[in-house]
Amino acid sequence: MNLKLITKGILKENPTFVLLLGMCPTLGTTTSAMNGMGMGLATLFVLILSNMAIAAVAAQIPGKVRIPAYIVIIAAFVTILQLLMQAYTPALYETLGLFIPLIVVNCIVLGRAETFAAKNSIAASALDGVGVGLGFTLSLTVIGAVRELLGSGALFGYPLLPSGGITVFVLAPGAFIVLGYLLVLFNKIKR
């Protein structure tokens, strides 16, 4: 049962390919496989901690103010993440830029708080956070890898194609188009 909590976030309820949540970081940060993975792991960190904290205090929060309360809890963990990243991974922090503070308004994090953490135990919420976070990380890494390979002919920074790539794939239009075609592929495989 516990394992199911983790696997459902990765495949059946994949936040990116099935639920289409958190589109802004998905499109904005996946210029390379490494950046996509970094963004996914940053979200995973916030997701686990906020899920646990919200599961712990949800019963005490009056229903009317629950959304603002959740947002403040999430914002606190995002601030912790920002300080940690500034200290230990300054280069990645620079690259991801605006999208790190924007984890606060990522619909995946708030969505899990509202639909899962508020109604379940701390342990189950932590596992749910791990599952959904890993699903998000995986999708972002895949999108990043495809864009990096097509756009700069490399994978995780290692050059693979001698001719380089088609630059448009690492630019804004490439993000939309690659995600669109990956969704088509996902729909085909699922059927």
């Binding site: 448009v168 804004a172 239009p173 490439g174 939309f176 188009i177 669109g180 075609y181 969704l183 088509v184």
Partner: peptide, 13 residues
């Protein structure tokens, strides 16, 4: 969603 995203990509282009 897929066709919407691809359309958005062309618009971004």
């Amino acid at each position: 969603a897929p066709i919407a995203l691809i359309t958005a990509g062309i618009l971004a282009l």
